[in-house]
Simulated assay, not measured.
Amino acid sequence: MQVVAGSVEDLRREGCRVVSVEGRPVGVVSVGEEFYAVSDRCPHMGASMCVGSLSGTLVPSDPHELVYGMDDRVIRCPWHGWEFDLSTGRSLLEPRRYGLRTYDVTTDDGQVVVHA
């Protein structure tokens, strides 16, 4: 199944748009030249992930060293701050337990297409 999420221009301008894929809300997120698609509902309490923020986070580093990374690759739930990796959908805190479903995204003739 394929769902056209909208034009490349519109999605880049908006940053995130929710579309319905097989009856489920999916957030299509624009980051630079790339597009990601993840379930739009946080597994904790169901908040819309597209309403949340997009940023980076602290990444593993040497003791007593703070290193910021994954810039614009972490989507954060607006209600309780749960963080998820956009590329894998996995929770940054408990990746084996929690995650967002991810979908493949392509562009075709200026349109962003989500593949279920």
Rank of each mutant, 00 (worst) to 15 (best):
residue 34 E to V: 08
residue 5 A to L: 05
residue 97 R to E: 14
residue 17 R to C: 01
residue 91 S to Q: 02
residue 8 V to K: 14
residue 5 A to Q: 05
residue 90 R to I: 10
residue 16 C to N: 07
residue 76 R to E: 15
residue 42 C to Q: 09
residue 102 T to W: 07
residue 57 T to A: 14
residue 15 G to V: 08
residue 112 V to G: 06
residue 27 G to P: 03
residue 10 D to T: 13
residue 94 E to Q: 04
residue 90 R to V: 12
residue 79 W to T: 00
residue 62 D to E: 11
residue 4 V to Y: 03
residue 16 C to L: 06
residue 108 D to W: 06
residue 84 F to W: 11
residue 49 M to K: 01
residue 34 E to N: 15
residue 20 S to V: 00
residue 74 V to E: 12
residue 39 S to H: 13
residue 96 R to H: 13
residue 105 V to E: 02
residue 32 G to V: 10
residue 67 V to W: 02
residue 101 R to C: 08
residue 38 V to A: 14
residue 102 T to P: 03
residue 68 Y to Q: 11
residue 115 H to I: 05
residue 37 A to G: 08
residue 49 M to Q: 02
residue 20 S to E: 04
residue 59 V to S: 13
residue 38 V to P: 06
residue 70 M to A: 12
residue 61 S to L: 07
residue 23 G to D: 03
residue 97 R to T: 06
residue 13 R to I: 04
residue 81 G to T: 06
residue 115 H to F: 01
residue 109 D to A: 14
residue 38 V to W: 12
residue 9 E to P: 02
residue 22 E to I: 00
residue 18 V to L: 02
residue 39 S to T: 05
residue 22 E to F: 01
residue 81 G to W: 07
residue 55 S to K: 08
residue 56 G to R: 09
residue 46 G to K: 00
residue 93 L to M: 10
residue 32 G to C: 11
residue 5 A to Y: 05
residue 73 R to E: 15
residue 111 Q to K: 14
residue 22 E to H: 01
residue 52 G to E: 10
residue 24 R to P: 01
residue 104 D to M: 13
residue 103 Y to W: 06
residue 44 H to T: 01
residue 65 E to C: 15
residue 79 W to K: 00
residue 34 E to D: 14
residue 94 E to F: 09
residue 15 G to Y: 09
residue 51 V to W: 06
residue 33 E to K: 15
residue 96 R to M: 12
residue 20 S to D: 03
residue 9 E to R: 14
residue 103 Y to V: 06
residue 107 T to S: 08
residue 72 D to V: 07
residue 109 D to T: 06
residue 21 V to N: 02
residue 33 E to F: 08
residue 84 F to Y: 15
residue 54 L to E: 03
residue 9 E to F: 04
residue 50 C to V: 04
residue 32 G to M: 10
residue 107 T to P: 07
residue 14 E to N: 12
residue 90 R to L: 15
residue 11 L to Q: 05
residue 92 L to M: 10
residue 76 R to Q: 14
residue 52 G to M: 08
residue 106 T to E: 05
residue 78 P to V: 06
residue 56 G to E: 09
residue 13 R to M: 06
residue 81 G to S: 07
residue 13 R to Q: 09
residue 89 G to S: 11
residue 68 Y to G: 10
residue 38 V to G: 12
residue 64 H to F: 15
residue 99 G to A: 01
residue 62 D to A: 12
residue 74 V to C: 11
residue 41 R to N: 00
residue 69 G to Q: 09
residue 11 L to C: 03
residue 60 P to I: 04
residue 73 R to Q: 15
residue 21 V to T: 03
residue 93 L to R: 07
residue 90 R to A: 15
residue 89 G to E: 13
residue 7 S to N: 02
residue 98 Y to P: 01
residue 41 R to H: 00
residue 38 V to S: 13
residue 1 M to C: 10
residue 115 H to P: 00
residue 70 M to R: 12
residue 71 D to H: 07
residue 12 R to S: 02
